[in-house]
Design a protein around this nucleic acid. Structure first.
Lengths: 231, 231
DNA sequence: TTTTTTCTTGAACATTTTGTAAATTCCGGC
DNA sequence: GCCGGAATTTACAAAATGTTCAAGAAAAAA
């Protein structure tokens, strides 16, 4: 779930500073001190974002960018020194998503990072709220409403329900659910899912005819939604 | 507490100049280089004032203005190039509060900014004051009123409460709160938030049924507001 | 400077949630 | 009906998370 950044910067001080701030913001940070290392790290780690210094030994930032762009549309923010000849149009044409002039305010950089990530993010609705007959699943406030009444629900349970209810009638295997709700790096018993399903069923049983958490024998579970006549 | 300006300007030199002067005047300055970014920043940061260049790539100043005006009455000063066809009447009709022709004297711009801010300062709108059942949180005077009675509250506590109460029911993680209340450049332990929450709870417990500082297990905290029947 | 207040932190403690194992029940094919 | 794999249930243990306290640091006020 944590987003990852690849920082390509040969100045050790700047790199460390960036690491410190970015990690505090919850990013997973990797640092590459030169272009070659950057390309290697890039193909290895597939980061969600690249901060790319223009002035680098051997292979410079533009070189790295063009190589990266051969295979990827990952968001890239260029770091350029003040006074460095930098043609914005040209720079953005080469495929950078934004640029920041050194010395920069950390605050501004963070704002730009967020802007770029938001811009390149899928046009998903940001409201995390689903509603069905007598049921509201709200991941903004982490609330589950059954018949308009709040039901205390632990986070994992709610996330599981939300995830399944996002695609009604789609069947999920236990392993899919473990990957998608617990995270791909979670190693656990698939019975865990059963137990959470059971706990959800306790909270939801008999509430509505229109939906239910159904078992698909030999496969997994689904949030089943029965269509009613559309008005 | 500092007033904030969103500068929408694609010329980096002008933007930097504006930043310098405005910051010297005590403004918190954000810069957006194009219309899209401007709209994003606007909805994110809710600035007290916008300086809006007419000539922008892709979505121009008028486009930005009309989108902004759909939801907000924030004061806007347009920056127009000399010779640019600009119809004052028309321009002000579109919802701008004032306009300045480039190249402009910084002095004049500042004068206009102050004039506009004075003119548009609504008695209630810009007040940093929130009111709920038996509770008033006033960040103008740094006062907390419970049942109409002043409760001595240290600044951080009050800011924290205010921040959470600005968006009732939204869950904030501890890190979000540290970033947004303490500042993005604050590096501290997230237990700090817990302690402040605890002290707020001591002051607020049992005051009203309609709201509460709730823990969202595994996620963070929220200022929960229970809807009552609207009158 | 001294005093007072506020803020931060770490540790002990409490609580809630989550995971696991094992017993039990269910389902579908033979 | 019987069997074996699959799902459910239960109870418990473990892990994760939250709360509280108190001491000391830092900041503000006097």
């Amino acid at each position: 779930m944590a987003r990852s950044v690849l920082v390509v910067e040969d100045d050790h001080n700047i790199a460390d500073l960036l690491r410190m701030y970015l990690e505090k913001e919850g990013f997973n940070v990797r640092i590459a001190p030169d272009g070659g290392t950057a390309l290697q790290e890039f193909s290895r780690a597939a980061p969600d974002l690249m901060l790319l210094d223009v002035m680098l030994p051997v292979l410079d930032g533009w070189g790295v960018l063009s190589r990266v762009r051969e295979t990827s549309k990952v968001p890239v923010i260029m770091l350029t020194a003040k006074g460095e000849t930098f043609d914005k149009i040209n720079g953005l044409n080469m495929g950078a998503d934004d640029y920041v002039v050194k010395p920069f305010e950390m605050k501004e950089l963070l704002a730009r990072i967020n802007a770029v990530l938001r811009r390149t993010e899928l046009p998903a609705d940001t409201r995390k709220k689903l509603a069905f007959d007598k049921l509201v699943i709200d991941l903004d406030s982490y609330e589950l409403l059954v018949n308009g009444q709040k039901i205390d629900t632990p986070p994992k349970e709610l996330e599981l329900l939300y995830h399944m209810a996002e695609s009604p009638n789609r069947v999920y295997t236990r392993n899919q659910l473990l990957d998608e709700v617990w995270g791909f790096d979670y190693f656990g018993d698939s019975r865990t899912v059963d137990v959470h399903i059971k706990r959800l069923r306790e909270k939801l049983e008999g509430v509505s005819e229109q939906w239910a958490l159904k078992t698909v024998w030999g496969v997994g579970y689904k949030f089943e939604l029965t269509e009613t006549a559309p008005q």
